[in-house]
Design a protein around this nucleic acid. Structure first.
Lengths: 151, 151
DNA sequence: TTGACAAATAGGTCTAATTACTATATAGTC
DNA sequence: GACTATATAGTAATTAGACCTATTTGTCAA
């Protein structure tokens, strides 16, 4: 069984554990999210799912993505700011976001892996994920940066 | 001169440096943001500003908040996901966000202060801020957590 | 101080993303 | 296989935020 199948397998388990029905739509949405290394928007996931399930509704995709984030099977990318973007890649990686063009860049950095939430937080809350989030200006925006466009 | 005035002062400087005009609207938006310890939405800031400038437009507030984030005088709170939320508190603090109720909790943790962006990132990008971002379920949502509401 | 010019604002309009609603279909369980 | 709660499709309704343009306002230099 390959890695991808394992993920699906454990997704099944997660659904059962949370008493969520395993529907074709849910599975397809999950697969679509897992198999995209970007940070797809609901719209993008929708298009992907539509290939296998031609008449899913966008609403279902939206609700499902939302559900996935509730059970910790996906995440809303921090700092979206524009349209919601989802991330199915739960392996440890960090995000850099350009405040100007809003693009999100993944990066890895050993020192940031396995960040542990502070004790007192863990007592009160259930932590699903801890990452480092860096904001700034990306290369191409830096180049045109001398002038700030406000209107 | 108190701390607040100092901030305003340095905001003036920042605007001049970036060749942005110092308009009453901009100042009021900045003040409104600075003086709220929440993470206000544009709407909230708008209401605050309206008290002093009764006929500002929401659009101006939106544009201005956007401008502030471009020059690093404010930040869009990571992981907004719902409506955009802004943060004028530039002192080092971290955010915990509940994936269910979307509330954002500030917290401080010494180990997370002064996180340094990795070298290779600093070369390519201009880093404005680096924080730790934790996602999970907050206390009150945990209590009702046995059942996940998906519809 | 004043005048010229570029930049910013108000206020209206518009758009696209997300959510809400409801009848129907389906997964899970006995 | 039938029952029941949950999920879905399709459509309609919201709403945050962006766009547009005439007017106003800072800024800077004479």
């Amino acid at each position: 069984m390959n890695n991808f199948d394992k993920k699906i397998e454990s997704f099944y388990g997660l659904c059962r554990q949370k008493r969520l029905k395993i529907t074709p739509q849910r599975i397809e949405v999950y697969k679509a999210l897992m198999s995209s290394d970007e940070h797809p928007s609901a719209e993008t996931v929708y298009k992907k799912v539509k290939k296998n399930l031609p008449n899913v509704s966008l609403d279902t995709v939206n609700r499902t993505l939302n559900t996935l984030s509730l059970i910790g099977a996906a995440f809303v990318v921090e700092g979206s700011g524009d349209v919601k973007r989802f991330d199915g890649n739960l392996e440890n990686h960090q995000h850099f976001k350009c405040v100007k063009c809003k693009k999100i860049f993944d990066f890895q950095h050993n020192a940031f892996e396995n960040i542990k939430a502070p004790e007192e937080l863990g007592h009160k809350f259930k932590v699903l994920r801890a990452t480092v989030y860096i904001e700034g200006l990306c290369q191409s925006c830096l180049e045109k940066e001398n002038k700030i466009q406000t209107n």
